[in-house]
Design a binder for these strands. Structure first.
Lengths: 143, 143
DNA sequence: TTATTTTCAGAATTTTTTGTCTGATTTTAA
DNA sequence: TTAAAATCAGACAAAAAATTCTGAAAATAA
């Protein structure tokens, strides 16, 4: 099997995009997020807690509790979520699994892959959550 | 954690590149491959068997046995190994983990990610093993 | 033919990732 | 003040991926 982001990270990205698209709500309960996105409640709950520890989202406890973004959507980049959950190792470790893959001792595909990787990193670093609101709403609606 | 190719696939790519770089040998024993690449012998053995079933490499049993490419290096593309081991799901499943991600119901990053993915696929489909011989030899030497 | 050396096949084990359960803590509404 | 409804924390369980083990089968050299 092949993966880009872990399931945790995929779900984390989905949830944060969902929160960004629902800014008009004060907070959103974890069971609403879980239901809307078809993610096991207890699992997304753990992921949201970890994103809170990383300062990406805020939580409110108690009867009227739930989750909301910690900052405005325009201040949160996709890479922030990826970094918080999966880390950035994908962007500096060898795609062929060779150790010490660097310009001095490059793996056979070092140059070609490095270019693609840089583009991916750039995309995730440039795009902020506010740019996705409409597309997220549309996607959720058709889930 | 984040992964592009599974460990199996990484090791498979390494081993096939190694075989391509050592075409002057008739066959290479699995314990030599394992030692040169620092891969557990029993594990790479399994991977090589699976690549043989996919027709990418050949094996010879018995006292003078070992493995060799089934075709000339110029006829084997990187994507062949990826497809045999990890499959091509990475190239047509949603990077955010959304179901039914397609042009009709795209995920928020569908367009931007799709472009990168296509480039990656193109690279892996265009590059054949013969182009990597020198770089592979250099990398192995400095492992 | 026989001993040796290799790949082969499948099961078993370990580790990592994913997902679940239990109960405590916090907050609010009645 | 009390009951209800939410998050929180940590242990637990299940599933998947990675790795190892065991012994058979094949081929060659002596």
């Amino acid at each position: 099997m092949t993966v880009i982001f872990s399931k945790k990270c995929e779900y984390g990205l989905q949830a944060v995009l969902y929160l960004a698209a629902n800014m008009f709500d004060d907070v959103v309960r974890v069971d609403v997020i879980a239901q809307e996105l078809n993610i096991p409640k207890e699992f997304i709950s753990k992921i949201l807690q970890s994103l809170r520890e990383h300062g990406i989202i805020d939580s409110k406890k108690g009867k009227t509790g739930g989750f909301a973004l910690a900052k405005s959507p325009s201040q949160i980049k996709l890479i922030d979520i990826v970094e918080a959950i999966d880390g950035l190792s994908i962007f500096n470790s060898c795609v062929l699994g060779f150790p010490n893959c660097n310009p001095d001792h490059p793996c056979p595909v070092h140059d070609k892959w490095g270019k693609l990787r840089t583009e991916a990193y750039k995309m995730l670093s440039e795009e902020t959550l506010d740019k996705f609101r409409d597309k997220t709403l549309d996607k959720i609606k058709n889930l």
